[in-house]
Amino acid sequence: MSAIQHAERSPLRIFLKTIVARAYPRVVAANRHKSWLFLDMALPMVGALAMVLVYQGLHAPRQYLGFVVMGGAMLAFWQNVLWTMGAQFSWDRGNGTLELMAVSPTSFEAVLLGMAGGAMIMTTVRAAFIILIGSLVFNVTYTAGGLLPAIGVFLLTLGALYGMGMLLASLFLFYSREAWHLGDALQEPVNFLSGLYFPVKALGIPAGTETLLVAAQVPIFALLAGVALRYLESRARKDGKLVTRWE
């Protein structure tokens, strides 16, 4: 009998190791497939450029260009959450990877956290490039006084976004293609409501209120994602959805 046989490892150990292991393909992918890197940066950049040109067409003051550049950077995160987290479970199920994860002692939460972690690292690098290039090209300046609150809000937003990504992943897992299309359809409305391209006060929401709303979303999404994952996993086992391939 070999030394590694029959050892039931602690759930915490499995949880932590899974996070690292699942983050690994994300980081590797970015380095091996340069075209993905290009796409991930180019899409938000082009989107931002289009909006900059709209503002130029409207002869807007230069400060609005900052909104657009920051919006482009956040768009990278939003698209990442929507497609490489939310949709990833559907892909994993499609090729049978999900069922292999399911029969292993790990948890979907750990897998999703790994996905989020890997994605967040890579997307942060991309977003930083977008801000840098955008700021240089459009000559955007930032005030130092606004930096700390901005970083705080940014981190809160990431927490909320990736929590939502985990929730979406469990919804996609269960509702499959319907949720997939919902994600697609949600893309622009979320861009609109999140004020990616213009100050949120234009929608009648004070900036402070929106910060509070974002902060509240962090625990709500995390909690909802945990509950949804457990519920949906048990429903999926009951209905055989973990083993469904193409629909």
């Binding site: 709209v54 503002y55 409207l58 609005y64 359809a185 622009e188 409305p189 609109f192 100050p199 234009a202």
Partner: peptide, 17 residues
Amino acid sequence: LRPVSMALILAVMYTVI
């Protein structure tokens, strides 16, 4: 949803400026 939202984004940008 997508085209209508896009139109609304532009309408708000237009109004802001």
